[in-house]
């Protein structure tokens, strides 16, 4: 019976052909091209000179690149805590029996993630603006502490925190929606049993909800890390990586090297490095999470 409705292999391959071809053309081919180009000196024109692993040697000695990688890790950490963490808490609140208008929470929570990153960057540039921004206005006129007001986006030491906040704000709703759907899939009787057994909200969250949506959290974690390892547009709009290199991230540095410095060979090397480092960070974090949750289960 199954064989009679199962399409022929050739039909399956035909259906797969278009997406696979698109994938190869848009993802695989550029990735392999970047890998090939990373072994060439390729500056300001078509001439490419094979230079072996010279670009990789330069990469290992490039302090700006590694500082940028550090900034990406900062973003990842800030966004895991800020985006997934806050989203989880908000989902628990919104899912509680006391919460009203759950649909409105979902809609408005998700809304910022539909706005283009450039618009978000511009909006927050205005929020942070030294003279006309709402943040300094609030500090000066509401809190009455003018000494706290400053040029936020020129604060080298804390600039990564300031550029992380818009990113966190933008994507909380995105992870909320994913978690809403995961929690909706949990059998309600489990929560009712826990309530009857006298479990507190915190205990329910940690010992029931978290383990049961572990796989969804892993997906969120992967999305969060992948997204922040290639962060570009918000920060480019707000600071363009400045002051100096203090908010530079890897993708922006790759762009700067490739197009501002017309060094496409080294830019390709940076792209390969972003790919490898992202895989390593995602793989490492998944391994850590699985290990930690396994311990909890034991």
């Amino acid at each position: 019976m199954l064989d009679s409705i199962r399409p022929k292999k050739s039909t399956i391959y035909l259906y797969l052909l278009i997406p696979v071809a698109l994938f190869i053309f848009t993802v695989f081919f550029p990735l392999v091209s970047a890998l090939v180009y990373s072994f060439f000196e390729w500056k300001s024109g078509p001439n490419k000179i094979f230079n072996g692993i010279a670009n990789y040697k330069q990469l290992f000695a490039d302090q700006v690149f590694w500082a940028s990688f550090g900034h990406n890790l900062y973003l990842v950490a800030a966004c895991i805590i800020g985006q997934i963490g806050i989203a989880f808490i908000l989902v628990l609140f919104a899912n509680s029996r006391l919460a009203k208008c759950q649909t409105i929470h979902r809609t408005f929570g998700f809304f910022p993630s539909t706005i283009s990153a450039v618009c978000i960057g511009m909006i927050w540039s205005m929020v942070y603006h030294n003279k006309y921004g709402i943040l300094n206005w609030f500090i000066i006129n509401v809190l009455g502490r003018p000494e706290w007001a400053k040029v936020w986006l020129n604060d080298t030491k804390n600039i990564m925190l300031y550029v992380s906040i818009p990113l966190i704000w933008q994507y909380i709703g995105y992870y909320m929606v994913i978690m809403f759907s995961a929690i909706a899939g949990i059998d309600k009787s489990i929560f009712e049993s826990a309530e009857i057994d006298g479990a507190t909200g915190f205990q329910t969250a940690v010992h029931i909800t978290l383990p049961l949506i572990r796989n969804t959290l892993l997906v969120c974690l992967t999305l969060c890390i992948a997204g922040n390892m290639k962060a570009f547009d918000n920060i480019y709009t707000m600071t363009a990586g400045g002051p100096g290199y203090s908010s530079m991230v890897m993708a922006m540095y790759g762009y700067k090297v490739s197009f501002e410095q017309s060094n496409l060979g080294y830019g390709s090397t940076i792209s390969v490095a972003i790919f490898v480092l992202s895989l390593a960070v995602i793989g490492g974090s998944q391994w850590l999470v699985k290990r930690a949750t396994r311990r909890m289960e034991v």
Binding site: N154, G244, Y245, S246, E260
Partner: peptide, 19 residues
């Protein structure tokens, strides 16, 4: 070459901050 100005421009921004 543009790569020279990229370095100067970026680092001058840090210089103005005293970094």
């Amino acid at each position: 070459d543009s790569s020279i100005w990229s370095v100067l421009n970026t680092e001058m921004q840090e210089m103005l901050n005293g970094d």
